[in-house]
Design a protein around this nucleic acid. Structure first.
Length: 312
DNA sequence: AACGCTCGCAACCGCTCCAAT
DNA sequence: TATTGGAGCGGTTGCGAGCGT
């Protein structure tokens, strides 16, 4: 049995809001506030609307201090960076952009920014840079001495000065890190900042459609990067920029709160030493991720059928 | 002018989360 | 502890405007 509807669907108006309705809603909220109860608000305000609809209209359109119109370059950058680090958490992203709503940002991303980023890609960045088969990856993996469980480390094969193979990041850490890269990296003079961000988050872009639907059946249909949940720590792998493509992202259990970290913006990137930074990750977990195909940041080579191929 | 196509935005839907009971 | 229901979120859809043919 499903849950009861939040309102009487038959007796609520749907579709675009009229100026009169807007005025009623604005007037009521300015006078009385929302009262913390959106469900009863439309009735009190004399509106034939669903409470959820009222809430949405208020938050996305009527609320004071909302910004409308073009997004600035800075806003673009923030959106891209946050999207890369925490995925499609539009409300969190919106919280970092005063005056912007999650819906605005979501629409902007889906309609413009995503294309803009694709457009700024250096074609060479789309080439398959460095392929590693799953088996070779596992061969190259080494047992982690710091972990008692069956974890292993992924080694960075790049002979790059930018030796940051697979660095455990939480959301804000990736932000700081990506900002660092996009702002300061001198290793990729031919790359735009968008492109570098792209590379940091390679999986979500190069892998194809980013707006795959979420699923409640436990399967991860979204890109893995987007699936770093609160209370989890995502791992952002960054390949050498000389080789154009960033790396992998993983999930692991953890204790840090993404949202908290997003607001704190206190990255750990600076604390990374530049030495090999192994990714300690349960072998079984990785295998499982791979076998279920739930980690879309492992990109597949169309030309190979049996063996999973990973780019980094 | 009429038609079809694309794009952008507003709004809806269905789900999860979480507090109250 | 289980249940209920509101708040909030993210994905999707519908529609109008703009543009090209």
């Amino acid at each position: 049995m499903g849950r009861a509807p939040c309102c009487d669907k038959a007796n609520v108006k749907k579709g675009p809001w009229s100026p009169e309705e807007d005025e009623k809603l604005r007037g009521f909220i300015e006078k009385h506030g929302t009262g913390g109860n959106w469900i009863s608000l439309p009735h009190k305000a004399g509106l034939k609307r669903c409470g959820k609809s009222c809430r949405l209209r208020w938050l996305n359109y009527l609320r004071p201090n909302l910004k409308h119109g073009e997004f600035s370059e800075d806003e673009d950058r923030i959106i891209c960076t946050l999207f890369g680090s925490i995925g499609s958490r539009w409300s969190i992203i919106a919280s970092q952009l005063p005056g912007r709503t999650d819906n605005d940002i979501k629409n902007y991303w889906n309609t413009k920014l995503k294309k803009k980023m694709v457009g700024t890609m250096n074609p060479s960045a789309l080439k398959k840079p460095h392929q590693v088969t799953l088996s070779s990856m596992l061969q190259n993996s080494t047992p982690s001495s710091s972990s008692s469980s069956s974890s292993f480390s992924l080694k960075n094969n790049h002979n790059s000065n930018y030796q940051q193979p697979y660095v455990p990041f939480t959301g804000s850490e990736a932000i700081s890190y990506a900002s660092l890269l996009s702002g300061n990296s001198s290793s990729t003079p031919a790359c735009s900042s968008f492109e570098r961000l792209y590379q940091v988050n390679c999986g979500f872009m190069l892998g194809g459609e980013t707006s795959c639907s979420s699923s409640s059946d436990g399967s991860c249909k979204k890109n893995q990067m987007s699936d770093v949940k609160e209370g989890e720590v995502g791992y952002v792998g960054v390949g050498g920029f000389g080789d154009q493509i960033g790396g992998l992202s993983y999930l692991s259990s953890g204790v840090e709160d993404t949202q908290k970290l997003v607001s704190s913006n206190a990255g750990r990137a600076s604390g990374w030493t530049g030495e090999e930074s192994p990714l300690d990750y349960g072998l079984e977990e990785i295998k499982q991720l791979m076998s279920t195909g739930s980690c879309n940041n492992f990109m597949f080579d169309d030309s190979k059928t049996g063996e999973m191929v990973m780019y980094y």
